[in-house]
Design a protein around this nucleic acid. Structure first.
Lengths: 150, 150
DNA sequence: ATCATTGCAAAAGCTTTGCATAAGA
DNA sequence: TCTTATGCAAAGCTTTTGCAATGAT
């Protein structure tokens, strides 16, 4: 399997774009983060590592990473964008606790059937899907019950 | 079944908030729109009807409508929020064409099983979920084939 | 008479963009 | 050498907020 750097390098070449240090460093960092991130935290992390890259470059690089399937946007409904690397990972969905805000990932094989049905029933060609679940984790449910009991 | 106005009136009363003309007018308009909307278009529509309500009031009212389950946020990944009324509607998901941008709604009963599994397996209490699908509609697939053939 | 709500305008995010400089190809 | 990419700062958007005035209870 190609590494994410190779994938991007190839993408860049095919498009007549340029393989730059900045893009390499950003991409490497993204694949070191095994969580979701936003532009601000990514920029901060790079800074911590002594890597000087402007936010503007991050903002300009992300659409490219997304376009070649290395990264995807994640919607956490909090007013700005979050991202995660997806290349080499199984597809997963998010379940965010409305109490503590913790995000948990889970896999759901059944969703393949949904894609299939959309293809058969609507002639739709599915590129990707994202299932976002909101609710309460066991700890927050318990906390809620105690609060209500008072 | 209670009307959306009654639902909101009750919610407002229970919370010691106030039932105002502005909130009533905004809510009525939202339930007249049988599509997705954003703050700007909602504001514009109200204006067209000679209703003077500031955007600030819309921004302040929406979280209340969401909180009492009348409205939900929709993520179309285009940099700002979209909304739709959900009270009295079956749960549905969105499939947005990456070609023409058209949004189509569809129901997917299988997702109830997903909620169930999250409850049983993780002890999670699901409040709601949203499945967003991206791909190409039949027309855009065809257009794409023609373009590539040239 | 209270106190929440409104409208306005200013402020606050986050993201994009223009432009001169740097650096891949 | 020819362009694309970068960094900076400014501009752009959407959304939020402070405050005086208004209006609901």
């Amino acid at each position: 399997m190609k590494s994410e750097l190779e994938v991007f390098r190839e993408y860049v070449r095919q498009r007549g774009l340029r393989w730059t240090q900045e893009r390499k460093l950003i991409l490497q960092k993204i694949f070191e983060i095994h969580e979701h991130f936003d532009v601000d935290s990514l920029h901060w992390l790079l800074k911590q590592n002594g890597v000087k890259v402007s936010k503007a470059s991050i903002y300009r690089a992300l659409p490219l990473f997304i376009d070649c399937g290395l990264v995807r946007e994640v919607d956490f409904s909090d007013g700005h964008w979050h991202y995660e690397h997806i290349y080499g990972h199984k597809h997963h969905n998010h379940m965010k606790c409305l109490g503590c805000g913790e995000v948990r990932e889970f896999e759901e094989p059944i969703l393949a059937q949904v894609d299939q049905r959309l293809t058969q029933e609507y002639g739709y060609s599915v590129v990707f899907h994202q299932l976002e679940v909101r609710g309460y984790c066991p700890a927050c449910q318990k906390a809620g019950e105690e609060t209500r009991a008072r």
